[in-house]
């Protein structure tokens, strides 16, 4: 009997403790959901009274900020397409061919990729992009991101494709399909869950990145949202909390939408071979 009480109370104690920790982590998120609708929002948590959309009206009137969202979309989607297509083709070739030294290639690229997207390489990257004449173009941002993300994307995808039996494409080819047909009809649909992971991962990476576009772009009408968000800071560097909160909510929506879409459509699961 005593033993049961002990277990009962330790269970309650644990739940209370876990709830406290949960609440602690939930506070910033709740602020993030409430502040945009509060005309007098500050850094403290407060329930909006009255509930208003005036912050959003002000944000939507700021063309620089709204164009920033659009630019982010161009750069992210462009980068995702570039990374997705190249990584799929490269990973497929690396997985299926008998090219000697193919793992060495992947590992060396992987090693250098962490340099490309790191801040240490910003000066050489700026110089390269400048000498190619691509400074202040969306393409430059897309290319630099692709350079940074591709090796990791290839590495993840190659591992994924390695786990898919070759017999899929072999059976297609024996049945009369050309290698290209076998790739599109059979291999690609089976690889798709892996590609989806790459797409989401690279989208989130590019969408949230500040340094690379900040350095490579000059004109304000090309800046992405991650840079444009600084227009909601006063000259002295203090944030205008109301507008910042509203803009941050808008800024995070596409990523949330992408996650929801992918988990609804694909469910973030891998399906490799059929269990035999």
């Amino acid at each position: 009997m005593r033993h049961m009480f002990l277990r009962f109370f330790s269970r309650i104690g644990f739940s209370v403790f876990a709830s406290l920790i949960g609440a602690l982590f939930a506070l910033p998120l709740i602020w993030f959901l409430f502040a945009p609708f509060n005309a007098r929002a500050e850094l403290g948590l407060a329930i909006p009274n009255p509930f208003t959309l005036s912050n959003f009206v002000t944000v939507f009137n700021n063309t620089f900020a709204i164009r920033g969202l659009w630019n982010s979309l161009i750069q992210s989607v462009g980068g995702v397409i570039f990374v997705g297509v190249s990584a799929t083709l490269a990973a497929y070739a690396l997985s299926r061919s008998n090219m000697p030294g193919k793992s060495a290639v992947t590992y060396v690229l992987l090693l250098f990729s962490s340099v490309v997207s790191g801040s240490a390489a910003m000066v050489p990257i700026f110089l390269i992009v400048n000498s190619v004449g691509l400074i202040d173009t969306h393409i430059s941002v897309i290319l630099v991101f692709a350079g940074g993300l591709l090796p990791t994307a290839m590495f993840i995808l190659r591992d994924f494709i390695d786990g898919i039996p070759k017999s899929y494409e072999e059976s297609a080819m024996v049945a009369g399909a050309s290698p290209v047909q076998a790739f599109f009809d059979v291999a690609l649909p089976v690889i798709r869950p892996g590609i989806v992971v790459i797409v989401v991962w690279s989208f989130v990476n590019i969408w949230g990145s500040f340094l690379i576009p900040f350095i490579l772009l000059r004109s304000s009408e090309k800046m992405p949202a991650s840079v444009a968000i600084y227009s909601f800071y006063s000259e002295a560097g203090t944030p205008i909390v109301t507008l910042l909160a509203a803009y941050a909510l808008l800024y995070s929506l596409p990523v949330v939408a992408l996650y929801l879409f992918v988990s609804w459509k694909f469910g973030f699961r891998f399906f490799g071979g059929i269990k035999a």
Partner: peptide
């Protein structure tokens, strides 16, 4: 190339296309 041989093959793991 396999596609030009007019053959058919049953694989050990069946290689059925999951999609």
């Amino acid at each position: 190339h396999p596609k030009d041989r007019q053959i058919s093959m049953v694989f050990q793991d069946y290689a059925l296309y999951p999609h």
